[in-house]
Structures are given as structure tokens and as C-alpha cells.
Design a protein around this nucleic acid. Structure first.
Lengths: 387, 387
DNA sequence: CCCCGCAATGTGTACGTTCACATGCGCGTG
DNA sequence: CACGCGCATGTGAACGTACACATTGCGGGG
């Protein structure tokens, strides 16, 4: 129908300029909220933009500014509850700052997959990187490639000290373990995650430390793969010997599998075997029995990672600017970019409704540590699930 | 450390050209696998590229070709199992075709959030759109905005007929319902999803049809919100009357909540109440008891959507080319672009390992319908979970 | 022998935007 | 009254790539 009107290319600022009777530069100034524009002129330009359905061409802009406005997310297993929650939050937060998100999933676990994913992101000229790839190896590769873009990792690697922002897995694991000890258990197993996952290792460490600190004899953790299926089979194996009264599972899914195995063996949870999980997935409250677990705020983590990353991008940006005159206060780079990104007549994106609560940036409590504290959620089988 | 070496900008094809002693155009030809390049020259250019760590500038390329190589994914609740699985598969498939993925999540449910997300993607100049936003309203808005990019939806809307690729929810729901009927149940409730979700509606339709076809008296479905929490409360409500012997839940999470409620009431599943779910999330096999449910292949859906979308993009591309001489066979646009995207010396991405199985495109079995068939997974509480 | 045509390469320009630098104009000040 | 300064705007470059069109060199058919 209206298709006919559209020729080859989309309208450019020059088209807008011609129709508005100004120069292309004036249009550009309107787009970038330059202060020295007469309101009258501005209005005219905006009107033409609206009429022409003009959209700034990101490629052209990126070409000249060499700012891609893209933040890369290097993820593994983004279909899992935790990472997925973080990524969703990251996306919202980034968009509120005028950034785009591009995720690269690491498909296998071989080095090629990892370098491939990194390559994919670098080809995009990402301005920053959020790493939610929990495998140790990812960080090795990242370190050796000496990536020069700002980077935030949601895993407590120890390698990228300043850039780490994570939930304190060790404390979480200690909470869970202590809970079992305080319940009187003395024979406790730990069903851990895959060996090369950083979180898995941290939780294992927390478990071992708490056991050791409480003078409870420690058994070797079992290495799992996060799946409920594995939990089930591990449970069957363990129950064939049955030299324990409690298990701390490194995530809720495996805990579910364990419970299944215990049930199959004709035993009772928590009567015969106590089980504690980790993550507090939304379903955990409805397991049979409701699962006691450790809650971590994945979304908050995602939000903060973006805050931190964008702050760092701004910092570098400011540092690389040689003079730039007396600042109007646009040094962080976040505030004006916000406006620039949403500068069109009616973008309407909830950029104003910052989910972090406060007024835009400056909201990151710099004192509050880079380690979020997880919370033990104790559930019993009776009554309401503890939400 | 090595930071000093990096001046302002990254090396361009002209830098490569100078060092290789050729013209910039020759470099461009190497990048694009032009046939008429002496192997010797090509090798020299590639060597310089490698030395300089040259990366083609996507922005510049996009600017001149007006092809962004980005496919937008319009998603809602991407943290849920189903969508997340599809998105992960989409990402891999797109990357294998040299495309990038950009997801926009619809945060709230208000129209502004929807238009905002669409706006966000359009600002990216996406070449195609995959819609995994199951709310009816999304499609209304999409239709009225008359988006002109190729579009594939994973929801059976009826509106975008040709562009729909989905799991046959109605059949799935019928399978589930029939199973309950065949078990002898005559008082069956349906716990549906949110009213405006297309899948929820389709499953409800399937349920009602099957009930009607089997001459079983029908009760009004209960509208839920997909969460296990809701399932739990709905279960409590229902059990206070207890005029049923079976429930078909529109997803597995709500089924879990239902089971919890039944258990709390001191009743037995499936002894007193039979429950069937939908989706077959990986945990379903380990519920107490293991949940009978309907499995749908989210990943396959994602893969196919990309195949279809890219085919459509190629089709439009070909159609808009007026002359372009006698074809070398590069009319589909997919094959050469594939190569172009991975044209660098060592991209190393598993572009060759096409997960769809076949050799690149042309692989979409055009006969195989656009509706994937779901599968009923019947589980009993004894023995191995049926994987 | 000439010229056509193809292989291999080079030259120039367009893409849409921003940036650095003009340019006019009005106004306050010495 | 001239000078300078700040506002509002315009002019002419880039940015890195691909495409259209030369330009060579070389072999073969008329």
C-alpha cells in the first residue's frame, strides 16, 4: 500500500535539512541536543523528522564516533535460571543508558567455542563486556587475549579483581552448611557443580571451610553437572551406601533430583535425609518438601554490572579526551548519552523509570562491596511456602 | 603495557593495503572472497591482516551496504525456560549464518513497553525480526505499525499466517487432555496461562475441543500467571471444593504448584488427583511424582525460525536487485554472505558445523509444516524417570 | 594483425553522521 | 564607533567500506 513511497534508502539528515530549510549540521545539532539552537528552528526540524519518520543511522554514527553503543555479554548456558535472570536485568539497565546488548553464548566447552564467542563480540566493536561465563577457562582465555575493553565479570575469579561483581558464594555455601550442622547433622555430603565452574568451586570451598570450622568430618564432594537428572543418579549411588544424613546441593535442580532419589528409595526428606539447595529458583518453594536453599539476587547483579561497566566506559572516555574545554558536567558520559540515545521525538522507552530505584547514575553505593550477600531461605513442609 | 602501541583508531583496509603493497580495493576483494585475486596476492594481504590484527569495521560496512547483519528478537519473559531455550538456539543458528542477534525484552505489559522494545530494535536497523512475545497485544501493535522487515513469529497468531512457525499447542493440549480422559477422568479442570498469551489461549482451545469431542462436561478454565506460586494457590482454592479428579495445567511450573497444594491437603497425586503439565522442563521428570507433560522442542523452533527468516531476507534481497547481470549463483544472498562474514583469517567460529544438519541453506524442508508436533511424555512414579 | 574479452588490479566516490572550522549578526564596552 | 565575544548557523572535511568504473596485460578468433 504505502510501500510505494519508500525509495531505496531511508531519509538522512540531509533530507530532513532540505525540507526544514536548514543545513545538515543544524539537524545534527538538534539530534545531539546542542544548546545553541533556536527553539523555533528546533521545532521545525523535529516536525520534519516526525513527518519523514526519520531515524538516525546507527552505523554512520558509529563509524564517525567509533562508539558502537553496544555492550557484549559473554555467556554460557544462558538458558539457566540464574544467568537468564541476570541477562534480562542487564538488558533493561543497559537500554536505560542508551546501550544495546549483544550476547554471545559459548556453545560447547572447547577453547574454540570460547574464542569464537569472544571473536564474535569483538567483531561488533563492543564498548564493554559483561562476562557471565562461569568456566575458569573462559577467564584464562580472556586474560591471555588481553582484551582492552572495560570488563565486568559476575564470577568471583580473583583474576579480574576490580572488575568482579558477584554474589558471595562462599558465604552462601557456609550458610547452607551451617544450617545443616545446626540441625545436628554430622554426616553431610556435598553435591557440587562442574569442576571448572567458578561458582561451583566457591560453593565447594564454603562448604569445606564451614565443615572444617565446625569440626565436622568432611567427605569428598561429588562433582555434578547442575541437572536434576544428575542429582537423581548421584542420589541413587549415594543411597546404595547411605552413610550420611544430609546433603548440600550446589544448586536447586540437583537438589530436586536428589529428593527424587531419596523418595524412590522409600525414604523421607527431611526425616531420613536433609537437603539444602542453592539459588532459590522460583519453583523451589513448591518442591516436595519445599526446599531450603540460598537465595541470590541475580537481577540486582545484572543491574549493578551495567552501572559499573558504564561508569568505567565513561571514565575511559573522559581519560582519552585531551582537552574538551570546561566541562558542562557531562564527564561521566552517561547522562548526555542517555539523552542522545533517546533524542528522537517519541522514543517512549522507559529510560526514566530506572529500576535501580534512584535517579539515574550516582546511585551505585560505592561503599557497598562488590560482593552481594546471599540469604538462606529455610522452608518447612507445612503451611505456606516462604516467599 | 602493550597499550602504547594502540593509537587512536584501529587499522583499516587502507592500512592493510599500504603494507601489502596493493590498493585498498584489492584488500576489500580479499575480504569478500572475490574470485579474481591471485593466490599470491591474497596470501600477502591475509598475512598483513593477521599481523595488524585487522578487523573489518562493521559500522562502515553496514553504512555502505545498508545491511546491518542484525536480527532482532522481540521477546517477553526471556528468563523462562521455553523462550530462553529458543533464544539460545536462535543465537547459534544466526551466528552460523553470519548474523548477529539483538534481543529486546518487553518489560511490563503496557503498550509503551511494547512500542519501546520495537523502537529499540528498529533503531538498530534489524534486517529481520523473530517474535517470541506471546502476548496478543504485541501482534496488534506489530500489525498496526506495519513493520516492513521480514518477520517470523513463534506464536500461532493467525495474523501473520505465512510467518508463523510454532509448536502445535492445540494438538499438545488435546494430547494431554485425552490422556486424562483415557485414564477415566470425567471431572477435569484446566489451569490456563494468562489470558492474553497466545499459547495459553491455544492450549485452552485444545483442552475445550478435546473435552467437547469426548463428550466430557467442561468446566471453565482458571486463568493463571505461569508461576508455581499461582498453581499452589489455585490448587488450594480448587481443593476447598474438590469437585474434580484431574487437572491439566498449561505449564509445568503451575503443575508443580498444584501438586504442592494437593500434597498439603493430604491427598495423593495421582491417586486422588491426576495432573498433567505442559512444556516438559528438565525438572519435570523429578517432581513428586514425576510429571506427565507435553514436550515441545523449543530449540528446534528457534533454529527453524532463523532458517526461515534468513531465507526470507535473501528472497527480498534478490527481489530488490534490479539487474545485477548474469547470476554467479549468489542470488539467495545467504551463501556468499556466510563466507563474507567469516572471511577473516581465523574466525574459528563453528560456522561450518551447522546444527541443522545439512549444508547451509536449502535445508528447510519446505514440505514439513510450520507447526511442529509436540509429544506427550507419560511418567509414572516408579523406576527411572522417562527421559 | 587487430581487437575483443577476460583476469587482475587500481581510482574515485557514495554511504550518513559528527567534528573542526568558518561565517554573519547583535550587543556591550572602552 | 570600532572591537570583540557569544549565539546561531553553515561549509567542508573525515570515518572505513563496497561498488561502479577505469586500466593494464595477455591469449585467441576473425
Amino acid at each position: 500500500m504505502t510501500d510505494e513511497a519508500g525509495r531505496g534508502r531511508a531519509p538522512s539528515i540531509r533530507d530532513v535539512a532540505r525540507l526544514a530549510g536548514v543545513s545538515h549540521q543544524t539537524v545534527s545539532r538538534v539530534l545531539n541536543h546542542h544548546p545553541s539552537i533556536r527553539p523555533e528552528t528546533k521545532a521545525r526540524v523535529l516536525a520534519v523528522m516526525d513527518e519523514l519518520q526519520y531515524r538516525p543511522n546507527r552505523a554512520a554514527r558509529a563509524l564517525v564516533t567509533s562508539r558502537s553503543r553496544v555492550i557484549g555479554v559473554l555467556a554460557a548456558s544462558s538458558a539457566q535460571y540464574g544467568p537468564a535472570s541476570s541477562i534480562a536485568a542487564i538488558e533493561v539497565a543497559a537500554r536505560a543508558h542508551g546501550y544495546y546488548i549483544n550476547t554471545a553464548n559459548i556453545v560447547g566447552s572447547d577453547p574454540e567455542a570460547i574464542t569464537g564467542a569472544i571473536e564474535h563480540l569483538m567483531a561488533q566493536a563492543v564498548e564493554g563486556l559483561v562476562v557471565i561465563a562461569p568456566q575458569v577457562r573462559v577467564f584464562d582465555i580472556l586474560a591471555e587475549r588481553a582484551i582492552d575493553v572495560p570488563l565486568v565479570t559476575l564470577q568471583p575469579t580473583g583474576k579480574f579483581g576490580d572488575n568482579t561483581l558477584a554474589v558471595d558464594q562462599i558465604t552462601g555455601a557456609r550458610l547452607a552448611t551451617r544450617h545443616l550442622i545446626e540441625l545436628g547433622h554430622r554426616h553431610i555430603y556435598h553435591l557440587a557443580g562442574p569442576q571448572d565452574w567458578i561458582e561451583a568451586e566457591a560453593r565447594m570451598t564454603g562448604f569445606l571451610r564451614e565443615m572444617s570450622d565446625s569440626d565436622v568430618p568432611t567427605t569428598a564432594p561429588i562433582l555434578g553437572d547442575w541437572t536434576a537428572d544428575f542429582g537423581y543418579y548421584a542420589g541413587r549411588e549415594l543411597l546404595s551406601v547411605r552413610d550420611f544424613t544430609a546433603i548440600f546441593s550446589s544448586n536447586d535442580q540437583m537438589a530436586l533430583g536428589l529428593m527424587h532419589a531419596v523418595r524412590d528409595a522409600g525414604l523421607d526428606v527431611p526425616g531420613d535425609v536433609s537437603i539444602v539447595g542453592f539459588d532459590d529458583i522460583p519453583e523451589a518453594a513448591h518442591f516436595a518438601p519445599p526446599l531450603t536453599t540460598v537465595r541470590q539476587d541475580f537481577a540486582e547483579l545484572g543491574r549493578r554490572s551495567i552501572e559499573q561497566l558504564i561508569a568505567e566506559i565513561g571514565r575511559r572516555e573522559a581519560a582519552s579526551e585531551h582537552r574538551h574545554g570546561a566541562g558542562d558536567g557531562d564527564d561521566t558520559g552517561a547522562a548526555p548519552d542517555d539523552a542522545a540515545a533517546g533524542g528522537l521525538p517519541a522514543p517512549g522507552y522507559p529510560g526514566g523509570a530506572d529500576p535501580a530505584g534512584g535517579s539515574g547514575q550516582g546511585d551505585v553505593p560505592s561503599t557497598s562491596s562488590r560482593l552481594l550477600v546471599p540469604e538462606l531461605i529455610v522452608r518447612r513442609s507445612t503451611g505456606d511456602p516462604a516467599f
